[in-house]
Write a protein that binds this DNA or RNA. Structure first.
Length: 592
RNA sequence: GGGGGCGUAGUGUAGCGGUUAACAUGCCGGCCUGUCAAGCCGGAGAUCGCGGGUUCGAAUCCCGUCGCUCCCGCCA
């Protein structure tokens, strides 16, 4: 080893020892005859001193050294002089008095600061990702990611799970997300697909009798990017046999509770994890992934505003649509401009406008609002009571279709929480969302689509509904939400061929097509399949939240840009004609 | 596929019809023996993303284009 210690471990008790450190020059300060270096490696920073009086040759060499050069220094650990300790540094009680120096490598001046945590153009970060990753903040993120994955591996291994790898080259399934296809050299005109998740394979491992499987699995989906979506990402893929929903929820809840408390520095604010039915989540928060770091629940007014003189409300109710409100605490003094901003957001979410009331007692009544005149005193009192509004608060209303009301109020809720500083990244709030409808109606195709995926079992008591009212059947599906993100989704699976074929029928999957695509699954299910179920938490999103980061690029070593490109290596790139010929591929010009 | 934001010395920003294109930091040189965002002095460094247009005059206004980013659609 070129070092005896790392740059984060020397303390006062090491004083007097001869040690060798190696790392990068984080910062340098030259005071003529005395040079200070902050020497950095993955473990921390140690101050190094080079004295011209005692080591003139080393001083002369050190004078040439610049930021990010790689050096090896040998010397004596000394306690810093009284009053010169640096309490901001773990190693701040000591410094290394250098008696030997080797420049291991020089460095060009980096294109951006390694030693400052300021913002850098994203394209530049990606082009020089290896330098970006050298920054202490990124190293912290990746160390946390490692610790999270290590904790998960240990936790599950201790509970009888084994990790099994599944193929990256697999079979395309046109259901779900767009596949990444891989052309086959040996089979002209045929393609593998990269897995969107190891869903089928883990179920087959249950058929195979492994009972408890997990995998830190790379997944691929060729869809457009978001801050929380990359074309390739990592799931904790997990499946168990002979379990019911409660078994899976208990396992994951126990694991994530300990994970947050033992591996991260975040505060877990939901313990145990609240459970919401899908219907309840939509009614109270307008989303199936509510952020429970704060309340700001919706108030439903549909049942009594029909008689008010405000036609937007009465007509909505007459059409069978909901009227709901959200209370923004302390926002009653919002200016015209601020209200306009909220209205613009509401319109972006689908609203036609945004009605509001400021709770403000005056001679005219208890509220200040353009629509106050349409309501009786009793009605206003009822609205205020239901919304839990107090003087100084602002009420915002949505009256439209169920979907629009949910979307609008969800948008406003998150905006208000952000403006009020309620979305504290130091907090993590998990909640389970359960009792999802098994199907959602696809208006375009005039058929039922699976809400989760086609192997999700219906609630056993709802099986009869598959024939009578498929839209009412609930699935044994469960999602885990955290801070407004979907962090995991899973289900108890169908292990019965008859039910599986019924599902295929309902989603309009022709029997022959189903056999072609899923024949291996159907066949496997006939050889003694245990009841089984599982879940798949997204590792990137989880680590993002535990690291307090705003997007998953910050916790992925080499992420892609929003255009799904790697700016460092230059991927994707064109292939050699010879490669294409071998793969039986001809590139055609894109149509305009 | 659609909408919003950003693009100015190496980096981060200011300037938003007429400036010698400004500030900070970094970089280069010098001074400096207790700094830790060191300090002081001096210096170099920008075809204002790219292309076109409007104008007497464009970093600034308009159109197009490229890149990054946020969002909608999409993501079983």
């Amino acid at each position: 080893m070129l070092k005896t210690h790392n740059c984060g471990e020397l303390r006062a008790e090491h004083a007097g020892q001869q040690v060798t450190l190696a790392g990068w020059i984080h910062r340098w300060r030259e005071h003529g005859g005395l040079i200070f270096w902050d020497l950095r490696d993955r473990w921390g920073i140690t101050q190094v001193t080079i004295n011209q009086d005692t080591t003139p040759d080393i001083h002369a060499l050190a004078h040439e050294v610049r930021s990010e050069w790689v050096v090896q220094v040998t010397g004596t650990v000394i306690r810093r002089p009284v009053g010169m300790e640096n309490t901001d540094l773990a190693t701040g009680a000591i410094e290394l008095e250098v008696t030997g120096l080797r420049v291991l490598n020089r460095a060009k001046t980096p294109p951006f600061y390694i030693n400052k945590n300021n913002s850098v153009d994203e394209a530049l970060r990606m082009r020089y990702r290896y330098l970006d990753l050298r920054r202490p903040a990124m190293q912290r993120n990746l160390v946390l990611r490692h610790n999270v994955i290590r904790f998960i591996r240990n936790y599950l291994s201790d509970r009888g799970f084994i990790e099994i790898e599944t193929p990256i080259l697999f079979k395309t399934t046109p259901e779900g997300a767009r596949d990444y296809l891989v052309p086959s050299r040996l089979h002209p005109g045929k393609f593998y697909a990269l897995p969107q998740s190891p869903q089928q394979l883990k179920q087959l491992l249950m058929v195979a009798g492994y009972e408890r499987y997990f995998q830190i699995a790379r997944c691929f989906r060729d869809e457009d990017q978001r801050g929380d979506r990359q074309p390739e990402f990592t799931q904790l893929d997990l499946e168990m046999s002979f379990v019911e929903r409660e078994d899976v929820l208990d396992l994951i809840e126990g694991m994530f509770t300990r994970l947050v408390e033992e591996v991260s520095d975040r505060t877990l604010v939901t313990k145990p994890f609240p459970r919401l039915s899908y219907a309840e989540a939509m009614r109270r928060y307008g989303t199936d992934k509510p952020d429970l770091r704060y309340g700001l629940e919706f108030a439903d007014l549909s049942d009594f505003v029909a008689t008010a003189g405000f036609r937007v409300f009465s007509e909505a109710v007459a059409a069978g649509n909901p009227v709901r409100a959200i209370c923004a605490p302390g926002c009653g003094t919002y200016s015209r401009k601020q209200l306009d901003e909220l209205e613009a957001l509401a319109k972006e979410a689908g609203a036609k406008g945004l009605a509001w009331m400021a709770i403000e007692e005056s001679e005219a009544g208890p509220v200040r609002s353009p629509i106050a005149k349409f309501f009786s005193a009793d009605q206003l009192a009822e609205i205020i009571a239901r919304a839990g509004a107090r003087p100084g608060d602002l009420l915002l209303f949505a009256a439209d279709t169920e979907a629009v009301v949910c979307a609008v109020l969800d948008t406003l809720r998150r905006e208000i929480a952000h403006r009020l500083g309620l979305d504290d990244p130091q907090k993590v709030a998990f909640c389970w969302v359960i009792d999802f409808p098994l199907f959602t109606w696809n208006e375009d195709e005039q058929r039922w689509d699976p809400s989760h995926h086609l192997f999700t079992a219906p609630m056993w008591e709802d099986v009869a509904l598959l024939d009578s009212a498929p839209g009412k059947a609930r699935g044994q599906q469960y999602d885990l939400a955290c801070n407004g993100y979907e962090i995991a989704g899973g289900s108890i699976r169908i292990h019965d061929r008859a039910i599986q074929e019924k599902i295929f029928g309902l989603i309009g999957l022709d029997v022959e097509v189903a056999k072609e695509r899923f024949g291996h699954m159907l066949e496997a299910f006939e050889f003694g399949t245990p009841p089984h179920g599982g879940i798949a938490p997204g590792i990137d999103r989880l680590v993002m939240l535990l690291a307090g980061q705003p997007n998953i690029r910050e916790v992925i070593a080499f992420p892609k840009t929003q255009q799904a490109a790697d700016l460092m290596a230059g991927a994707p790139s064109e292939a050699e004609p010879g490669q294409l010929a071998e793969l039986h591929i001809r590139v055609v010009e894109a149509e305009d």
